[in-house]
């Protein structure tokens, strides 16, 4: 499998990163270099192997269903660029 420039444009869109047209070729080459290297995993027989989804086997702990924090509007919005009066601000979304 290899990626072409259109695929790079598509994944950059999915990742919400603007990529200039003149960057597409170099990015496609870089990604293909990495992808052809990871292809070697195809040699490994993984039939019947369970995927590993966590680093250490553990049983999730239960906690009491209780509110332990809150009322932090000022702290939560303090770093927002373009924030206003305790709100997050985004460009107009609904016409």
């Amino acid at each position: 499998m290899s990626v072409d420039q259109n695929t790079v444009r598509h994944i950059a869109r999915l990742a919400r990163i603007a990529v200039r047209d003149d960057e597409l070729e170099a990015l496609a080459n870089e990604l293909n270099g990495i992808l052809s290297w990871v292809e070697q995993l195809g040699e490994v027989d993984t039939d019947g192997v369970e995927p590993m989804t966590g680093a250490v086997e553990m049983v999730m702990k239960w906690r009491e269903d209780k509110v332990t924090t809150g009322n932090l509007q000022k702290e939560v919005t303090a770093n927002a660029p373009g924030g206003d009066d305790g709100f997050f601000v985004v460009p107009k979304v609904v016409e």
Partner: peptide
Amino acid sequence: RRVLMGTYVLSAGYYDAYYLKAQKVRSL
């Protein structure tokens, strides 16, 4: 580079071939 790579291996049609495969090799 890594965000794009990660987006690609998680995208529809490639998830099993790359991400799931890697998680299985990780088990081994």
